[in-house]
């Protein structure tokens, strides 16, 4: 398996010294090439969990391993991040943004450029290489952020609400395109989302987190083979799982029951 979390627990300490339990008792395994979506009420610790996976945050207890190696600090070759608000570096052009991980790794400019260009082609933005992020729409910026992650050839892609800041139309268009790309490149993906549709549509497996402190309330497998076409949305399986998610997230007692 690619990624494993054992007895994970995270407690934040606020500036005032108060402790905020964010995650408890997380045990999870994510297989090679598996697409896992994480969904849960806002503030339940989804981003926190993803940060632990990526080594951006060390858990208060428990550990995360990738291919057996414990994760203690970020390594973009192991797990690369795509953030919700794209966070491209505004002073670097699109190509340099796409190649920034290679640049940080001390690779040559030529190597970075070549790889960056290749990734921009993959996300269909090679013509914009010389432009600055502010000249691109939100959807395009997020594609650059995906290119930036893919340029690292990571084993795992960690995406924190990657389409969250986009409007519905862009989101769908970008989504189906990303789906193609992510499926083709054959790597594990962990994607946090707050959209029920997204959670079902993409996933091999859906992890539902309960409200704070987040714990795994339920894991749901989606059997339909990937990549899926839009017609999957019309199937019974989609409707059933979506209904189940809706119940868990919108009816408090259902969630409480599930997390027992």
């Amino acid at each position: 398996m690619a990624l494993q979390a054992k007895n994970l627990e995270v407690t934040y300490r606020t500036a005032g010294g108060r402790s905020v339990p964010a995650l408890t008792d997380i045990n999870l395994e994510i297989a090679d090439r598996e697409f896992v979506t994480i969904i849960g009420p806002s503030g339940c610790g989804k981003s926190t969990l993803l940060k632990c996976f990526g080594g951006l945050l060390s858990p208060s207890r428990g550990e995360v391993t990738v291919n057996g190696q414990p994760v203690t600090e970020p390594d973009p070759n192991r797990a690369a991040f795509v953030f919700q608000d794209y966070t491209l570096l505004p002073w670097k052009n699109v190509l340099d943004n796409a190649a920034v991980g290679l640049h940080f790794a001390g690779r040559s400019k030529a190597e970075g450029r070549a790889k960056g260009q290749e990734m921009l082609e993959l996300v269909g933005l090679d013509e914009f290489a010389k432009q600055f992020p502010r000249e691109l729409s939100g959807g395009m910026q997020q594609r650059v952020a995906v290119a930036r992650a893919m340029a690292m050839d990571p084993d795992i892609l960690l995406m924190d609400e990657p389409f969250g800041a986009l409007d519905e139309q862009t989101r769908q268009k970008l989504g189906s395109e990303m789906g193609r790309i992510l499926t083709e490149t054959e790597r594990s993906v962990v994607m946090v989302t707050h959209s029920l549709d997204e959670a079902v549509f993409w996933a091999d497996r859906i992890i539902v987190l309960s409200a704070r402190p987040g714990r795994i309330a339920k894991e749901i497998e989606v059997k339909a083979p990937r990549p899926r076409s839009l017609s999957f949305i019309g199937t019974d399986e989609f409707a059933l799982i979506r209904a189940e998610l809706f119940r868990l997230l919108e009816v408090p007692s259902a969630m409480a029951e599930a997390s027992q």
């Binding site: 970020p74 973009p76 991040f81 953030f83 608000d85 002073w91 640049h103 930036r148």
Partner: peptide
């Protein structure tokens, strides 16, 4: 902070963080 976070997530050493994030952002 979010740009510093990107630098960290993409493995930037102290020097790269200064050169590629702090300096340009503060220009």
């Amino acid at each position: 902070d979010r740009h510093m976070m990107v630098a960290r997530a993409y493995g930037a050493s102290w020097w790269y963080r200064v050169r590629d994030i702090v300096l340009p952002a503060s220009t």
